[in-house]
Design a protein around this nucleic acid. Structure first.
Lengths: 109, 109
DNA sequence: CAGGATCCGATTGGATACTG
DNA sequence: CAGTATCCAATCGGATCCTG
């Protein structure tokens, strides 16, 4: 977790989404609704079980995603955004647009 | 609507603002306009010269801040947002608001 | 299937000393 | 004043093996 050297709420949002695969997780869940661990992993080529697990745990702990386990063999675990977590979508959309325009600008040069 | 999760520009924006002191730099420049290296350092207690320098270089290279040196002794260097860099403000404001509401929510519990 | 545990390399950031 | 350069500690993420 990053330290917070300054007293601003931007850092709070940063902490939520910083991590190599966190944005991918959030975008996948926002786009696809409920997904199993397995499905998430397939949508994110290169992610390891360890990283996927730890990122999911952190997002769950912050209340933005929901984890539901079905007591069966083999196990089934489903992840989805909480209603609260869905409020992140606006932020991510704005970041998406800025990123797109930034890439467009670099293309020009 | 968001783009496809596997081809998404959110990461581009992330790359721009990830770094322990980058948000602090951007917020200070957006708020205060032109600032000298020295002034920035005073506004960010704990930052080292090394980190401040390297973050400033990266932001400059991406075209969001402008660096002006005055050839005099002792040296004088001024930093400010470029017009382009100022477009980041909307994104940062949205992140600020989400962060504030997130902290408020955690307070309730 | 969905992880936990462990080890390790890579990256990030801090401390300190020096300089035009 | 505004940096460089070097070394070092902490954190992050990847690889691998194991399990109910």
């Amino acid at each position: 977790m990053l330290g917070k050297p300054y007293n601003c709420k931007v850092a709070t949002t940063m902490d939520m989404i910083v991590g190599k695969w966190k944005i991918a997780i959030l975008l996948n869940l926002l786009h696809n609704g409920t997904m199993r661990f397995n499905e998430l992993q397939k949508m994110m080529p290169g992610v390891t079980q360890k990283m996927l697990t730890s990122h999911l745990r952190e997002l769950e702990q912050e209340g933005v995603i929901k984890r539901v386990t079905y007591p069966q063999v083999p196990p089934k675990v489903e992840y989805s955004m909480t209603e609260y977590g869905k409020t992140l979508q606006t932020v991510l959309e704005m970041m998406h647009e800025w990123g797109a325009s930034h890439l467009a600008k670099k293309q020009q040069q």
